[in-house]
């Protein structure tokens, strides 16, 4: 992936999407540039989470128009796992608990599925653990969390740290962070942000979906996109955050 300013890693083109019978995204267009942090802000019900679900191919969402182009290919008909294997990662707002599925076993399966897809050697258990331990410390995660069932009984902060651990291990190219700051205390927010910032390499793109500007103090955005009623109504630089803080979303005109 080059760092060419005009290159787009992900192009969301005039997307219309429904959940049930309700149209949520109403002609949404958005381009993600390589190496940039794009923040999506908007009021409740604007379609922020639906946008993230649409990109990753969630079963709730039915795309009724438009297209999503990732690295030059349309992915709108791809299965969720194909999108993930090609490098799209969503950090869920509410990660699901899966009792009985061991966290380390799950993550190793996912990492090896991706490595296999990329034609790389799969990691054995020892190699995987060595790799993972590097990140556990950084994220302030207790080592017993990897031997527990996936997200089962994890606190809100632990779940989000676990999402970031997965992100770091899977090394995706496009990272969507859906309300990553919700339910996090200051320490957890700092640890999670540090993990995210570690992933910035000038090539990866980030789509940070948030209600509040707090997370943007930790993850510095390049662009702010305001989403309202299923469309991006304004795109600007980070200076827009202060304006939103002061005047709210209602003050933003299309």
């Amino acid at each position: 992936m080059s760092n060419n300013k005009n290159e787009k890693v992900l192009e969301i083109k005039d997307v219309h999407a429904k959940i049930g019978n309700k149209e949520i995204l109403k002609g949404l267009s958005l381009d993600l540039e390589p190496g940039k942090v794009h923040a999506i802000m908007g009021p409740n019900g604007a379609g922020k989470s639906t946008l993230s679900k649409t990109i990753v191919g969630h079963y709730d969402v039915e795309m009724s128009g438009g297209d999503i182009i990732y690295k030059g290919k349309s992915i709108k008909d791809w299965e969720p796992e194909e999108r993930a294997l090609e490098g799209i990662f969503l950090s869920f707002q509410h990660p699901v608990e899966i009792p009985g599925v061991n966290n380390a076993y799950f993550l190793r399966t996912a990492v090896n599925a991706k490595r296999k897809h990329e034609g790389k050697e799969e990691l054995n258990a020892a190699e995987f653990l060595r790799e993972m331990k590097k990140y556990l410390e950084l994220l302030g995660m207790k080592s017993d969390m990897i031997s527990r069932s996936l997200n089962e009984g994890f606190s809100g902060g632990e779940k989000k740290r676990n999402e970031i651990l997965q992100m770091m291990m899977l090394e995706p190219d496009v990272i969507i962070l859906d309300e990553i700051d919700s339910g996090l205390d200051i320490d957890a927010l700092r640890a999670v942000s540090e993990g995210i910032n570690r992933m910035k390499d000038g090539k990866r793109s980030f789509l940070v979906i948030t209600h509040y500007s707090r997370i943007l103090d930790y993850i510095e955005p390049d662009y702010i996109h305001v989403l309202k009623d299923g469309k991006v109504i304004k795109t600007a630089g980070p200076e827009l955050v202060a304006q939103l803080e002061e005047h709210g979303y209602d003050a933003i005109e299309e």
Binding site: E79, P80, E81, A84, F92, T109, A110
Partner: peptide, 10 residues
Amino acid sequence: FYLQSRGISY
């Protein structure tokens, strides 16, 4: 879906 979103097949 959660597992699929991490690249694990259906």
